[in-house]
């Protein structure tokens, strides 16, 4: 039989572990209670696909923000994922220990920079470059995509690198022994074998990009209109909440919570896909 102390410790750990879970449940329930009524009143279709966001006139269509989120995230993935994959291949396959031991912590450091610093740097560095060389106001989808592309690097790089490194050595040896070059081995054996982990990393990166708020507020321009070019300003679901929550009340406030529901669902779907991809082997 277990002693009383053992039992007691077990129960304490159990309670603490569940309290983390219950916070998640609390937040979810809270957001749904606050946000669902407005969705019910406006209708889910009119809410998600409504073209006009004008809370003072009682119009709650978040489609411009949905488009803004999708565009910025897609842009971040297009710019960031190839760089991240090259970087992880370099770290896992080519870099001598000395160099990878230098690069790896540096990339982890990228994850530690506060997002407001990214936003500030984007505002004073990226935005003027875009304004001067490509035109438009500078505050744009492109600026947001560049910043987010950098911010998702650590996630995508470290997960891809780990999945490459965790492959059995025998795959590599087998391919080399058949006369494949190093690059052929990476392209035809290692990358396909590590595909599930790499896909999971990319999706988690995308989830990170879609949820990012502060950095994006500062460089995106935040106009509530459907952007027609990557040089146009836009607003995302997160920035919409971030900008307006401070002064919103009544239906307006409910609509922002409802925006939160949409975000939460998108991120839950992305995380489930990532977990599914990572488990599939």
């Amino acid at each position: 039989m277990k002693s009383f102390n053992e039992k007691f410790a077990e129960v304490v750990f159990l309670i603490i572990a569940f309290s983390a879970l219950s916070v998640l449940a609390l937040i979810t329930v809270f957001i749904f209670i606050e946000g669902l009524p407005i969705i019910a009143r406006v209708g889910i279709f009119n809410f998600v696909f409504g073209m006009t966001w004008s809370p003072s006139h009682g119009e709650f269509g978040i489609f411009p923000m949905v488009i803004g989120s999708v565009a910025v995230t897609l842009g971040a993935a297009i710019l960031g994922v190839p760089v991240a994959l090259c970087c992880s291949i370099f770290l896992a396959e080519f870099a001598p220990a000395k160099i990878s031991n230098l690069i790896r912590p540096a990339i982890q450091l990228l994850a530690g920079i506060p997002s407001v610093v990214y936003g500030f740097w984007g505002l004073v560095f990226i935005v003027p470059i875009i304004r001067n060389y490509l035109g438009g106001p500078g505050l744009s989808i492109l600026a947001g995509s560049v910043i987010l592309a950098i911010m998702i690097l650590p996630t995508v790089i470290s997960i891809s690198e780990v999945s490459l490194l965790s492959l059995p050595r025998l795959y590599k040896e087998g391919a080399f022994a058949l006369g494949a070059t190093h690059w052929q081995t990476i392209r035809s054996v290692l990358m396909p074998a590590a595909k599930s982990g790499i896909v999971a990393g990319i999706i988690l990166g995308i989830g990170r990009a879609i949820g990012e708020t502060m950095a994006v507020i500062m460089v995106l321009g935040n106009a509530v209109a459907i952007p027609l070019s990557i040089l146009d300003p836009a607003r995302t679901l997160t920035t919409s909440i971030g900008i307006e929550m401070g002064y919103a009340s009544g239906e307006h406030r409910e609509a922002l919570f409802a925006t939160g529901i949409v975000l939460l669902i998108i991120i839950m779907i992305l995380n489930s896909i990532a977990q599914y991809a990572a488990r599939k082997r």
Binding site: P168, Y171, E173, G174, A175, L178, G179, A180, S188, A193
Partner: peptide
């Protein structure tokens, strides 16, 4: 090798791997 090490791909792709690379 000591441990059979087919690549995680189809039977056909495993055999065709070498010739394809060459």
């Amino acid at each position: 090798f000591q441990k059979p090490n087919p690549f995680p791909m189809s039977v056909l792709d495993n055999i065709a791997f070498g010739p394809r690379q060459h």
